[in-house]
């Protein structure tokens, strides 16, 4: 009986094409939403990994190096370096600032000690070695050798790194420690975090060690509302897609009431009619999902915020699309089952 369903799809192809286009756009938006959400989590993972330390030491009671502004004296670095189990220790200053030249942009700034733990990865050029130099993220579209101004401090880009962002895609600038201290603490010799190579078995009083997982959890906390909103929008989009497919299948069932009555009167079982409608819903969903993959690929580069769509998101799309299609066709299936075969005679 699948023949009837496929022929019906061909027969009403204009309507089904419109439905597929609308559903595909909706599915593409869910893919993009999944991409946004994935990016938020992956950029956190990257920024934590890129610092590459075995442990992060902060003032006791501090929730995390990225979210809190609690400071410790710079000499704490030496105390930590002397702690048992620690090979090397370096100070970091993490802050949020703004770049005013060559364009106004919000930026994350990480001040680090050249040659120490937590050196940034370089895509082009080199890492900063002396005061007044900066390593900028490619998202800032600043070239090597360009002059920039961050937090009122003139700097020169000596290198670039790629994809080092956090807080909804905000790009990161690495500068020498003293430049970051100048921006954050008016030059006072304070630091926000000490990173180590080797894990300390004990720490000086007033300090606390955070694992990478704790740092990631802390960094994800401010994003919770954003990711929940994205998940909610995704759910609404799935419902919208189900509504489009459901209404088109129900309309098809309404228009084919007489056909169903004839089929029943000639001995077709309900299961055959239901299978035919369900097949239509699945064909609609899967075709829409396939088109959505193409649409998402085309639309993703248009967003200023990076959209990372993983293979599992595509696989999930097809699995959910089939489920949505079947769920959406329930009303149409019920309609088909209830059709009185006597209708084939034009009534009783």
């Amino acid at each position: 009986m699948w023949l009837i369903s496929l022929r019906d799809l061909q027969f009403r192809r204009r309507r089904f094409t419109i439905a597929i286009a609308a559903t595909a756009l909706t599915f593409a938006m869910t893919l993009l939403m999944a991409g946004f959400s994935a990016t938020l989590h992956s950029e956190i993972r990257r920024i934590v990994d890129v610092i590459g330390a075995d442990s992060r030491i902060v003032a006791e009671g501090t929730s995390g190096p990225f979210t809190a502004s609690t400071v410790v004296p710079a000499e704490t670095t030496d105390a930590v370096a002397a702690a048992p189990g620690v090979d090397r220790a370096s100070a970091l200053v993490l802050l949020h600032s703004t770049m005013s030249e060559p364009a106004d942009r919000d930026v994350n700034v990480i001040g680090y000690s050249s040659g120490g733990v937590g050196e940034p990865p370089v895509t082009e050029g080199r890492a900063p070695e002396e005061a007044g130099e900066a390593l900028v993220d490619t998202a800032l579209e600043v070239g090597v050798g360009d002059s920039i101004s961050v937090g009122g401090l003139p700097l020169r880009a000596v290198g670039t790194s790629d994809g080092i962002t956090y807080y909804f895609g905000t790009p990161t600038i690495f500068v020498p420690l003293e430049n970051a201290q100048a921006m954050a603490f008016s030059g006072q010799d304070l630091v926000t975090t000490v990173v180590t190579s080797g894990e300390p078995s004990s720490l000086p009083e007033g300090l606390e060690e955070l694992t990478p997982t704790q740092v990631r959890t802390d960094l994800e906390r401010p994003l919770a509302n954003g990711t929940k909103s994205i998940d909610l929008i995704s759910a609404l989009l799935w419902i919208t897609a189900a509504g489009i497919i459901g209404s088109i299948i129900y309309l098809s069932a309404l228009e084919r009431t007489r056909d169903f009555a004839v089929l029943k009167a000639t001995g077709a079982p309900n299961s055959a009619l239901m299978g035919g409608l369900a097949l239509q819903a699945i064909v609609l969903s899967v075709t829409s999902a396939a088109l959505a993959v193409v649409l998402a690929q085309l639309l993703a580069p248009l967003f200023p915020f990076g959209v990372e769509i993983y293979a599992r998101a595509y696989a999930a799309l097809f699995a959910i699309a089939v489920s949505v299609g079947l769920l959406a066709s329930v009303a149409g299936l019920r309609r088909a089952v209830k059709v009185d075969p006597a209708l084939a005679f034009g009534g009783h």
Partner: peptide, 22 residues
């Protein structure tokens, strides 16, 4: 049936096949 009640999306051949396929 009165008014033929053929399935409009199917060809004549397919309409006759329907009861057999069912």
């Amino acid at each position: 049936f009165q008014a033929f009640n053929l399935i409009p999306s199917l060809t004549a051949l397919e309409n006759v096949q329907v009861p057999l396929l069912a």
